[in-house]
Design a binder for these strands. Sequence first.
RNA 1: GCGGGUGUAGCUCAAUGGUAGAGCGGCUGCCUUCCAAGCAGCAUGCGAGGGUUCGAUUCCCUUCACCCGCUCCA
Length: 540
Amino acid sequence: MDMDKLVSLCKRRGFLFQSSEIYGGLNGFWDYGPLGVELKRNVKEAWWRDMVSGHDELTVSGGAPSTFDMVGLDCTIIMHPQVWKCSGHFDLFCDFMVDCTESKKRYRHDQVRGRWVTYREQKVFVTTMAEADKEQGELEAKALKFFNIRAKDADKLAWDGDSVSLATINDTKQVLAPDAKTLGTLTDPREFNLMFKTIVGALGTAEDAAFLRPETAQGIFVNFKNVVDSSRVAVPFGIAQIGKSFRNEITPRNFTFRSREFEQMEIEFFCKPASSPQWYKYWRDRRYQWYLDLGLPRERLQLRDHHADELSHYSCGTADIEYAFPFLPAGEFGELEGVAHRGDFDLRSHSEGKLTKDAEGKLIVELGPDGKPKHRGSGKDLSYFDAEAKERYVPHVIEPSAGADRATLAFLCEAYTEDKVPDENGNPRERTLLKLNPRIAPIKAAVFPLVKKDGMPEAAQKIYRALKKQFNVFYDEGGAVGRRYARQDEVGTPYCITVDGETLQNGSVTIRDRDSLKQWRIKADDAVAEVTKLLNPAGS
RNA sequence: GCGGGUGUAGCUCAAUGGUAGAGCGGCUGCCUUCCAAGCAGCAUGCGAGGGUUCGAUUCCCUUCACCCGCUCCA
């Protein structure tokens, strides 16, 4: 599929526009047009319905270890700055980077490592990005090349001290950058703010700095106690939230895939530590199935477990649900949702202070240079008393975190179809259509009078008004009926109802299926019942 | 952030140092009894800023955005 064609259709038909387009646009920001907002709302509402409001806490659903509760939450985008310090975002999202003017490469300042070495009175700091086990070999090879000496004379190099991070070096003039041949090609370290900074208070000073949330999850963790105390939920239970998040992506690209302002659909599921692996598996499989049910095919959707070395420092297991977006190279997949087993990292961090892993892999409070906690927690007890088991523990957390915009984009990509249908003379003609699942289609049905006379518009309008009470439907009486069908196909409307001459005789109308072009007759009075039936097939 | 490319109507494209045209789409009317038909008419544009010039959509600079590659991807 040609991505440009989809982007063009999205703009032409009002699904997606570039933000601030009349001013030249803004990199990484996108607006949803009249049809796009319907589509995205339908995606979010399907998620909320399927995960939260439609959840049956009385029945053990397929694959779940037990029954469980689900509730929702809607938190603010701006929270106490300490939230981001304890969550780990503050440390991770405020990186210092250095650029190499020779190789044009960019490095995380603290990740560049090197050693001082002297040869014939010249002392330089040789650096590399190599892994620890290959580091010394790399450094020696680079030093030999720089001083232009043979490998057999390697013992003439005088090494001084162990390998250290570039962050400990003040004099960049004597630094040989990892991919450079000459000295002093690195810029001074510059701060990269991956979180959006803002000011709280009209007289904003530096102390009033706050951040727009980079994820909705933390609002759930900091409200854990409020929800437990107020809503009669018992572990195991989940708290769900849909909302905007903000990240300064370094390279926003690929349409809405990597936007700087985006919407998340997140669940934090709290469970007993011992049963958390089962819950992890449950959520991972259930979330994968959700995308299949809404129309992404198994061939283009994969559930990929992270390797151990890919896991975040707090995670005991993470799987990504990934879709083969057409803008990616063949065989590559892009993340739609991450399902992470986060252990008790978040609740404990917000209670005790930001945690880190010690040498044995145990979570301990991270200390600053002064020996005190680097980021102080709230000091509030976020443990849970399990009345059934008569024990107190900090629940473990499973986090299915989905991108609403990415899901919407994936459904659009998958729906985009070109086929050939017979024209009025029976010759094949190119057609563009969106084969959207009717559940998420922006318009559920269109109603047409076959021609604009003989009372057909009046009859069609009556059907339109009846349908409109329950569904987003569209009325169109202009031009040839074939053109009106084509327009609806292009925006993914699953059904078209047409009033014709027979309607006036016997009260029947035709109803047409978008994908198959099949038409059948129903009673005009049954239009609402028929569309309701089609949109709610048995078993769902 | 770097390198390369691109930027003209809603979309796809053309032409030009003397302020732009087509196809498709859109709108109005006529016609039209089932898949973008026909006829008549209408509307809409040189991404932004600056410079050179009598005059810039065209040449130059800057900027913004998009695409490709690198980097980044918490």
